[in-house]
Design a protein around this nucleic acid. Structure first.
Lengths: 255, 255
DNA sequence: CATTGTTCGTTTGTTGGACAATTGAAATAT
DNA sequence: ATATTTCAATTGTCCAACAAACGAACAATG
């Protein structure tokens, strides 16, 4: 017979795994304050420094959080925490615009369709406000990209599907720089914004009517327009995304 | 007027950010060996402990790696590293089977369709082998779930879209425990496996013919079957997934 | 009375130095 | 040439200490 390889883990990893298990098992719930580093070190029978290394790991996966200098508490990992890392992975793997677009071509129309049956009045109002703000931004000559991004997030949230939200987030984060180049380009800056806001408006109307198929179809057209604009601007669909174009930075932590 | 919040970061975070920037800027490339902890500490002018905490952060995001006890080197973050964390986030947010299924209903048929135009001979052979192995497992009464998971991964890889691969990975990881319960259930264990392998076979044929629409359609049917089985087994679509059902564990690291 | 300064105990952030365990490679013996 | 045995380098862990920041309570100031 033969023994399997032993899973020998460094102590700091054992520490983080142990705390993680308690959280996932529900014995520690979101919001609970964890013991201090010194107490944890005493309880585990290790040095405080080892505990700290374990905590760094947990922080990174979003399971625990600390407002700098203050006590540690259990948190629910939010997709916002994970999306930047996914985006980075895609950048480093030289993912192309075409790949991102293909995925969005599946997820965005589907999000619109699901949203049609589930959207509530509050979010519908937010979407309407977003469309108006976009029109104002166009006449004012301001950037409409943050508004566009916000529009799509609102639709995805209205779809009431957190798995969908999680799947689309890193993809659309990477669209950001591409969008900027697109709308600065002379060939697309003329009609592009008008077509965009027209599509947005139609989608909102369809959502208000609860018409899933119309919502899906206009979102699909909207995405096709996006790709066409990319073509028209002379950008290469199969080129890796700009590695320097980092995703929008998170606000500095409270301290 | 008002000042913006100061971005005061702890030293270990500055350390990890600094190294991260070098990697993302391409001045450090995958495979490069980093200086030793002591050297890093000297260069940055901080203690080795501080450097170590920074390293823990980088390791966690997959940018650097170390085979236990050995030197640190730059690595390309792989989605395989990130998917488990996404799955965990979904579990903690009490994502339901319905949400996962909706996303898969978009991504899996689309993956099949894309694969139809892009699959190569080698992967096609792997898929054929997978289907045969699945049939053998059925007659032998063994579990077909690992084979099913492998089948879908193969199709997704054949689609030649890394963003798609990344988006679907955490979702299907969470299907694993649901699949197990499904195929152990008396009502589905009788015909379920036969229908599954039939669908798989049709999909492979369509891929071999390069027929995207047939591939998409059979994958869609396959996914509908999955959901129907879930219903038939009397499981609740809108119940949160089992938090104890952890995603399959990674093999222990070499040491 | 609202704001500002002071004090104090608690907890995190950082430093110093130390040593065991492991690894990779060089040196030695077979 | 192949094992085996050193040996220096490097990581993993520990111990002890102190600076920095925070929360709260309270005094001082205008």
């Amino acid at each position: 017979m033969a023994f399997a390889r032993l899973a020998i883990l460094p102590t700091y990893k054992v520490v983080s795994d142990t705390i993680e298990r308690e959280i996932l098992a529900g014995r520690l719930n979101a919001g609970d304050i964890l013991p201090t580093e010194t107490e944890l070190a005493d309880q585990f029978g290790v040095t405080r420094h080892t505990v700290r290394e374990g905590i760094r790991i947990l922080e990174q996966s979003g399971l625990v959080r600390r407002e700098a200098g203050r006590r540690l508490y259990v948190a629910e990992p939010h997709y916002g925490d994970l999306a930047p890392r996914l985006s980075r992975a895609m950048v480093m793997q030289r993912v192309t615009f075409r790949e991102l677009w293909e995925v969005s071509m599946d997820l965005e129309p589907s999000a619109a369709a699901h949203a049609a049956g589930r959207i509530d009045a509050s979010r519908l109002a937010q979407l309407r406000a977003n469309v108006e703000a976009t029109e104002e931004a166009i006449t004012a000559g301001a950037s409409i990209i943050p508004l566009d991004v916000a529009f799509h997030i609102l639709v995805a949230e209205a779809a009431g599907n957190r798995a969908l939200l999680l799947a689309r987030e890193p993809v659309t984060q990477l669209f950001y720089p591409a969008l900027e180049r697109l709308f600065r380009h002379p060939k697309t800056s003329a009609v592009g914004p008008r077509r965009l806001v027209e599509a947005h408006r139609r989608i909102v109307e369809a959502l208000a009517d609860g018409d899933a198929e119309v919502a899906r179809e206009w979102m699909r057209k909207h995405m096709v327009d996006f790709r066409r604009g990319y073509d028209t601007a002379g950008l290469d669909l199969d080129e890796a995304l700009d590695p320097t174009a980092a995703p929008p930075a998170a606000p500095p932590p409270r301290r």
